[in-house]
Design a protein around this nucleic acid. Structure first.
Lengths: 247, 247
DNA sequence: GACTTTTAAATGTCAGACAAATGAAAATTG
DNA sequence: CAATTTTCATTTGTCTGACATTTAAAAGTC
């Protein structure tokens, strides 16, 4: 592993890339210990702070973990589903909030992906998953529930639906799509009537999954997408009327 | 923004988290300049190297960018689709390779997600997208093509299919699913006959999309999934016979 | 042999310094 | 006065050297 001191790129970036490549290519395997910071500094011909900055970059991506003490050091980390899930949610949330993605676009993506899970969920959901959905539906019907809590419960419901597919890769991929929409959903005021409509559709979907009926689940999701879009449209229309475009 | 020096967590982690929270919550907006490193060190009551380590963490996630010079500094970065896409691919690839995800599981997730795009792609694909698919199909039929090049072309074909849905959020979400499978696909030896079968199915899918026929596209993807699984199974069975399980 | 103490190695943090880049202000020039 | 060049202050990038803290293994003690 060599780096180029005359490159315009920062040394710490070059070092981080070099180590990342070694991990991705398999030259460094899971749980393998990297050389100590002074050793790395020696190998790359840089100072220890520079090495440390590179290691922090890798740590931020959960590619390595560090441990203090006599037998400590930096170790190649086994990227867990939880780590990947968290990164996915953070990235997706920021992507949506920073790029002014329209509610329609985000919603379309999310429901398209959820429909992809529906047949598998209908086929494989365990009683645990279905119980979670029922619990969340019940919670959504509780009076006095704030809009935020309602949204959080909505996310939990959809997570159960997705997890019901029994495919961890699918769950991971959908984490971003479902959770990243929460901030957008939080902008919506849910009237008692709209909550009722959503709860009814959630019930339809849960029933379809319990019955192992994939197509009915898809139908339910379609109806829910339509309802969500309608609701968002009415909210955003109201805002636009209040505060018309300038210029 | 305050941090707790007595906390077990590293100071640089606490600082990175504090700044990340400020970005995610909107306290720091896009293109806003953070205080200079010495100023941050002062505010958090830590040394400059510690601040720098925190900034490198954020830089690794593309949350900030830094610029040298008089008017330089660290700025809140607008997370681009490209950045998010790259992170997504890296994370998904490592997740699959480090967790020994079975080919079946990854394949199932990928095709489930692609089927989610199919109706939208059939409806919206431009001539550009279709031309790309045709080009890749042609390339896949070229004699002398290596297995790796065949896989790369396969990925390009599927990317065009996904992008045809005209939803950038969907494209981003699927980037990981499609590209992360490439290393798994690269383990497969594609015989002339299996290539023919895949090319035929690609043609079927391209035709269905050009005809605007969503259900036919889904059918094509289903057939392709079956074919891919069959192919992988024969390859892995052969390997297992050669090198039987120890223990 | 079981327990305690010491020790060495590693990361975490700090302080101060210099190098390099960069834009703005100041000086110079026509 | 306008245009150009020079100077300069600011900021990040990097280095050196040091100390603090954590941790497990080694040494010592009963």
């Amino acid at each position: 592993m060599k780096i180029d001191p005359s490159s315009p790129a920062d040394l710490s970036v070059q070092i981080a890339d070099a180590i990342r490549d070694a991990i991705v290519s398999g030259d460094l395997i899971v749980d393998e210990r990297l050389p100590s910071e002074p050793e790395l500094a020696d190998q790359f011909n840089v100072s220890r702070p520079t090495v440390r900055e590179a290691l922090k970059r890798l740590g931020a991506q959960s590619l390595i973990r560090t441990q203090r003490g006599a037998t400590g050091g930096a170790f190649v980390n086994r990227l867990s589903y939880t780590d990947a899930y968290d990164q996915q949610v953070t990235t997706a949330t920021l992507l949506l909030s920073m790029n002014a993605v329209s509610f329609e676009t985000a919603c379309e993506a999310r429901y398209a992906l959820e429909r992809a899970c529906a047949p598998l969920s209908a086929q494989r959901s365990t009683s645990d998953h279905i119980a979670t959905m029922r619990t969340e539906i019940f919670r959504q019907g509780q009076p006095g529930l704030t809009d935020e809590a309602f949204c959080a419960s909505d996310v939990a419901f959809h997570r159960a639906l997705v997890d019901g597919a029994g495919n961890p890769v699918l769950s991971y991929q959908l984490a971003g799509a479902v959770e990243a929409m929460q901030p957008l959903m939080n902008m919506i005021t849910f009237t008692a009537r709209s909550r009722e409509a959503i709860i009814a559709l959630h019930t339809t979907i849960a029933d379809a999954i319990e019955a192992g009926d994939g197509p009915a689940t898809v139908d339910g999701l379609n109806a829910l997408e339509t309802e969500t879009l309608k609701l968002a449209k009415s909210v955003f229309d109201a805002k636009t009327r209040k505060k018309p475009e300038a210029g």
